[in-house]
Design a protein around this nucleic acid. Structure first.
Length: 574
DNA sequence: GCCGTTTTCGGCCCGACTGTTTTCAGTCG
């Protein structure tokens, strides 16, 4: 685990304990903020420390700086050890239970000796929890429900599952409640295109809330209704995903959208700035406090405009510097779906894909692409029906023939060549040099010198792009044992592009790593790795990640027009 | 514990909901 992560986790734990011990909430918040900022930091904290720049990190003052320095130089943090003294393992875990906060947990711990999950269950069952001052039957019942939920621990859903659901709900709502409905948008982490989302939030503009909510909870894809009021409906849809719909009147739709989009850290920072200027932001609008006057709320842009900021794209709203940039009107121009000229990594029936070259080309043309990189697997990838050299050459011929027929569109010949155990490539240079584009990927030996093998691959003059560079699968595995810093340095040195694999369970590189890559001048390629023509649309997830990484078209290889791309592929290693 | 176009001291986001209260504390998003 990186030092950044370790320190962030320690600060988070300290915040938990301090909260449990009823320390000043502001102190607790200071630790939480420091934890978040360090967790999001794009540089190695050790480097920042050695260069004496810890103080420049927002939220890190004298106290935090000293704790970080102590940890980096000795491997220990005395404050952490001190607060963890006498805190039973398994106690803080209970803070994740809904409706059970630090105050109640401290009370149960102090009065009833609750130290773990089993203790908690016991004091709920035997009624002793309900006897404590300030407690009662209903509170305990809510905690019991929270405990049930905690134990069934539903995980976050991946973006790839959530996005189709939200689009179906919105399309159904437009059909069935069209005349009562104004604007309707997804909000929350889905709108920010996070890799995974908790539940799905949808905002609907209407002055007939009750009716719209009724329509929502009776949609055909609804499996179970959790709540249906005048302003909010909550359901479980097929597949077990929770979807909330909020009905909001026109004059506060914008501020509600801003509020429900988050992130929490972004909103807190925004409201703090507002407050310093005598303004107040809530889900109902932005107000001048002294004059008790509403200054905006109908459109989201108004909130930012009144604060003297540019409108901030939802993908940036994580309090990672976007607010400062928006104040200075220096937000980057982010890459957009329409900037993409093609996809540089897809598979066909030649290896483990489902479609012919022609079918993939047709699907790509429909998306408005002008090129498509055909990168089937190489010979060692037996499980994926990897191509022998003769087959690859035959495919090359077919591509050339098709390109004579495809007007205004170009299939690029390529391969996803395996990086072998010793770091050599699965095809010899004489073969690779015949191809337009070479993606090199690791598919085996996830724990064997991955970084060194990948770097050796990058040093090959024919390798253009490293495919799925960390190998993670969001819902399944951590990824290879890879040193991301070394990979980024090598990619910058060898002018090799790195892939943002847009397949929703990969999104690899992640947003933070992609941002670091771009800052080192590395080109990123947003590729779907599609095995089916109907999967090309997943490019949207990659674009979401790229936007979260603050990338502009100039950072993205497949935003280049065909002639410039071919030129780049020819000269980038020289 | 952090931080400064009100401030180096005295603040620190906002509102809803719930349950236990007789004026409010805890929790959540």
């Amino acid at each position: 685990m990186s030092k950044n992560r370790l320190i962030a986790d320690m600060f988070e734990r300290i915040a938990d304990v301090l909260e449990f011990k009823s320390e000043l909430p502001f102190k607790v918040n200071a630790y939480r903020k420091a934890a978040r900022v360090i967790g999001d930091l794009q540089e190695d904290i050790e480097l920042v420390w050695r260069e004496g720049r810890l103080d420049s990190i927002p939220g890190i003052g004298k106290g935090m700086r000293e704790k970080i320095e102590e940890f980096l130089s000795t491997g220990r943090m005395s404050k952490y050890e001190e607060v963890m003294q006498g805190v039973p393992a398994g106690l803080l875990e209970l803070l994740k239970i809904q409706n059970l906060g630090p105050k109640t947990l401290a009370l149960a711990h102090r009065e009833l000796g609750v130290n773990n999950l089993d203790d908690l269950k016991r004091v709920i069952e035997d009624g002793s929890l309900a006897q404590l001052p300030g407690m009662g039957a209903k509170k305990v019942e809510n905690i019991r429900k929270g405990l049930e939920l905690f134990q069934t621990a539903q995980e976050r859903i991946s973006l790839g599952v959530a996005l189709p659901i939200v689009e179906e709900v919105i399309s159904l709502m437009k059909q069935r409640a069209g005349n009562q409905l104004g604007r309707i948008h997804p909000a929350g982490s889905l709108r920010r295109m996070r890799e995974t989302v908790g539940d799905i939030d949808i905002l609907a503009e209407t002055d007939q809330g009750a009716e719209v909510v009724r329509t929502f909870v009776s949609l055909p894809i609804v499996e179970r209704v959790l709540a249906a009021g005048d302003t909010k409906g909550s359901v479980i849809v097929q597949g077990g995903v929770q979807v909330d719909l909020r009905a909001v009147p026109s004059d506060s739709y914008g501020s509600a959208l801003q509020y429900f989009t988050g992130s929490k850290a972004h909103n807190v920072h925004l409201r703090d700035i507002a407050k310093r200027r005598g303004l107040k932001i809530s889900e109902y609008g932005i107000f001048d406090v002294a004059r008790d006057e509403k200054l905006g709320g109908r459109d989201e842009e108004e909130i930012y405009r009144v604060l003297g900021m540019e409108w901030i794209p939802p993908e940036l709203r994580e309090d990672r510097g976007e607010i400062e940039a928006a104040l200075e009107k220096k937000l980057p121009r982010l890459v957009d779906l329409s900037d993409l000229k093609g996809d540089l990594h897809v598979h066909t029936r030649y290896s483990d894909g489902a479609a012919t070259l022609e079918q993939m080309a047709e699907a790509a043309k429909k998306l408005g692409y002008v090129y498509l990189g055909v990168c089937d697997h190489s010979r060692t990838a037996k499980y994926a029906r990897g191509l022998e050299i003769e087959t690859l050459l035959k495919q090359l011929e077919e591509i050339e023939k098709l390109n004579r027929e495809l007007n205004g569109f170009r299939l690029l010949s390529g391969t996803e060549v395996d990086i072998l155990a010793d770091g050599s490539l699965d095809f010899p240079d004489e073969v690779l040099e015949k191809l337009d584009v070479v993606v090199a990927s690791i598919h085996s030996g996830f724990k064997q010198n991955v970084s060194e093998r990948m770097i050796r691959a990058m040093e090959n003059p024919h390798v253009d792009i490293i495919g799925h560079p960390t190998g993670r699968l969001i819902s399944k595995r951590e990824g290879y044992d890879v040193d991301v810093d070394k990979i980024l340095d090598a990619a910058a040195r060898t002018h090799t592009a790195l892939e943002i694999n847009a397949f929703y369970d990969r999104l690899d590189l992640s947003d933070l790593n992609a941002r670091r890559a771009a800052e080192k001048g590395i080109m990123l390629a947003i590729n779907t790795d599609s095995h089916h023509p109907e999967h090309l649309w997943m490019i949207r997830f990659g674009v979401g990640t790229a936007r979260r990484a603050w990338l502009g078209p100039e950072n993205v290889l497949n935003c280049l027009p065909l002639d410039q791309l071919l030129q780049w592929l020819k000269v980038h290693k020289q």
